[in-house]
């Protein structure tokens, strides 16, 4: 105790978004990141079903998953729109492309994703037995689009695959590009978000598959469970690498890692993201694959909760992390 010295730092800065700590993003951005990742996962799944010529074996992934992409993105983008402080200028995102700004990449990726997944949505709609009876189905425009989508099914699936991967990774890059926020500043974050998005997508698809097949174990369901389990394992490994990277990096990185290793976000991170989002559902899925014991709903729901938690905790904790005020040389 006698040997310690103290540092007292006072500032008269008083910007509400920055003091006493960074607080720029509330619920809107985590919601968007989750839904973006989810949409990415669904896109990739549906593309896989098409490109691997397994549409018949994976009907949910091929036909139903695409239907959720546009709604998910619409809700996500609405959240983003609500976050803007100057909403009237929202069109400015689309008057330029700033290659150094992940947000700019994101706006354009999303723009294109809407087009391609819109086409996929139309195509998928016409796969539904009851849709053909609606008056909407008779619209010439829709029929034309459906035809276009049908003729270019593989091409569309390829572009959806590429866009889905881009979307999944970009949501992570969006955060990791901020060197001023050490908790986020890891290149692994993009892959974590992609894995999480895939996991969430697979979980949602598994839920849908279970509902549609009326709780009968289907080959697709098993596939989705395996797929999700793989994603969980990869995601866990990547999270581990992310933490290791922080601990073996700079002082700022170590301080950031401390937020989830004893700091204020520890309990939330390890219980919601790791236990609820990874370990428990992973275990359930292993049990399901081995013993054929199926709780079709629990594991996927936990995965989704974990995915939401991951985004919320990361966005909040990342804002707390900062490069400490030291006054260096040069």
């Amino acid at each position: 105790m006698q040997n310690t010295t103290f540092t007292e730092l006072t500032t008269t800065r008083m910007n509400p978004h920055v003091d006493p700590g960074l607080h720029i993003w509330g619920w809107e951005v985590p919601v968007y990141l989750f839904l973006g990742g989810l949409a990415a996962g669904l896109l990739i799944l549906s593309s896989y079903a098409v490109l691997s010529r397994k549409k018949r074996d994976l009907p949910t992934s091929a036909n139903w998953a695409p239907l959720l992409v546009v709604p998910a993105l619409l809700i996500g983008l609405t959240a983003l729109f609500l976050d803007l402080e100057y909403k009237l200028h929202v069109y400015r995102f689309y008057l330029t492309f700033q290659p150094t700004a992940p947000m700019s990449w994101g706006s354009w990726i999303l723009g294109i994703v809407f087009v391609t997944s819109g086409l996929s949505t139309v195509y998928a709609l016409y796969q539904l037995p009851w849709f053909a009876n609606l008056g909407l189905a008779k619209m010439r425009l829709l029929q034309a689009l459906r035809g276009f989508a049908g003729r270019h099914e593989r091409g569309l699936a390829t572009s959806n695959l590429v866009l889905g991967i881009s979307l999944g990774i970009y949501t992570g890059i969006l955060l990791s590009a901020f060197s001023a926020r050490p908790l986020w500043n890891s290149s692994v974050l993009g892959m974590i978000f992609l894995a999480s998005g895939l996991s969430s997508g697979a979980a949602l698809a598994a839920l849908m598959a279970a509902r549609l097949n009326r709780d009968e174990a289907s080959p697709e369901h098993e596939f989705l469970v395996r797929f999700d389990l793989t994603c969980i394992v990869v995601e866990a490994g990547l999270i581990g690498l992310w933490i290791v990277g922080l601990l073996t990096g700079t002082e700022a990185g170590r301080e950031a890692a401390a937020l989830i290793l004893g700091g204020p976000y520890t309990a939330a991170f390890w219980s919601l993201v790791v236990a609820v989002g990874l370990v428990v559902p992973g275990t359930l899925e292993v049990m399901a694959l081995r013993s054929r014991w199926n709780s079709h709903l629990v594991a996927p729901l936990l995965v989704l909760v974990g995915g939401v938690a991951l985004r919320f905790i990361l966005v909040n904790a990342g804002q707390v992390s900062a490069i400490a005020q030291t006054v260096g040389h040069g």
Partner: peptide, 9 residues
Amino acid sequence: TGCKACIAA
């Protein structure tokens, strides 16, 4: 647009 990316950056 008030997206606040710059404030985070």
